[in-house]
Simulated assay, not measured.
Amino acid sequence: MLQLALTGNIASGKSTVAALLAAHGATIIDADLLAREAVLPGTAALVAIGDRFGPSVLRGDGTLDRPALRHRVFRDAEARDALNAIVHPAVRRLRDAGLADARQRGDAVVISDIPLLFEVGLEHAFDGVILVDAPASERLERLIRDRGLSRDEAQAMIDAQWPSARKRSGATWIIDNDGPSAQLPARVAELWQTIQALPLRGSAADTSS
């Protein structure tokens, strides 16, 4: 099984690339979906969030108030680190379970979609890293247009992540999403051909094991 990571800063187009890779046959393990599962009512992570940040980040029905929590952490590095320390271990356990299921099914290419891959130091845990990138100015406009955020809110979200220039040097492959959207499928298809030519981990052709 080939284990790859997919990452990209907010509004880079990473989710679109993940969907295109899935259409080509990759198994996608989405950290954002796992993060939502990790904080469902009754989970230890949600209890810990409530203890750390108080009842203002919880809704009346006991679910997480994501906008309220986002407001608390994106402008406060210490609060953001505290949240990551709660959520990331729970997400990692869920991802490990997903990888085990994929291995049992015999899936050939498994791609873990991890937005904060470099920030949490996971880039070396995979056979390769795919980075989706777009200019910060373009990502800012996408956040304002597509998510209805104020310019200040959108900029705070961008500033909470490493600049993409810092990530490009650590990526195995880079997909630049800086042009017409029609170009993206062709760029992903070209990458998929490259991935298909790679030896699977543990295969006879893999002499690095």
Rank of each mutant, 00 (worst) to 15 (best):
G128W: 03
P67G: 07
S56Y: 00
L58Q: 08
A100Q: 05
A125K: 01
S150T: 15
V129L: 03
L116K: 01
I195V: 14
D113F: 00
R93V: 15
V120N: 05
V188E: 04
R145K: 10
R147F: 01
T27L: 12
R52S: 14
R93W: 00
L46Y: 10
V17W: 02
L34E: 13
G170H: 11
A186C: 11
L4T: 06
S164E: 14
D30H: 09
I28C: 07
A85D: 11
I130N: 02
L116H: 03
D146P: 01
Q155H: 08
L184G: 13
G62M: 06
I175R: 10
L2I: 11
L83E: 04
D113C: 00
A82F: 10
T194P: 06
A197Y: 05
G60F: 02
F118L: 07
H24W: 05
P180E: 12
A19Q: 12
V109I: 14
L46G: 09
L117Y: 06
T43V: 11
V129Q: 03
G62N: 06
A85P: 09
P199T: 13
D51A: 15
V129T: 13
G8D: 08
Q193G: 15
E153W: 01
T207H: 13
S208F: 04
A171Y: 08
D107P: 07
G106F: 02
V47M: 13
V110G: 01
V39A: 04
A136S: 14
A31L: 07
D32M: 07
L69W: 07
S15T: 12
L117F: 07
D81K: 15
R187H: 12
D107F: 04
S164T: 14
L149F: 12
E119W: 04
T43W: 06
D81R: 15
P163C: 06
R52Q: 15
A108M: 02
L198R: 13
A45N: 03
V132E: 03
D96I: 08
I158Q: 13
A204L: 14
V110Y: 01
A11I: 10
S150Y: 02
T27R: 15
A45Y: 02
A26Q: 05
G148H: 03
A90H: 13
D107E: 12
G106P: 00
A154L: 03
R166F: 11
R72H: 10
A82R: 08
G148F: 01
A23G: 12
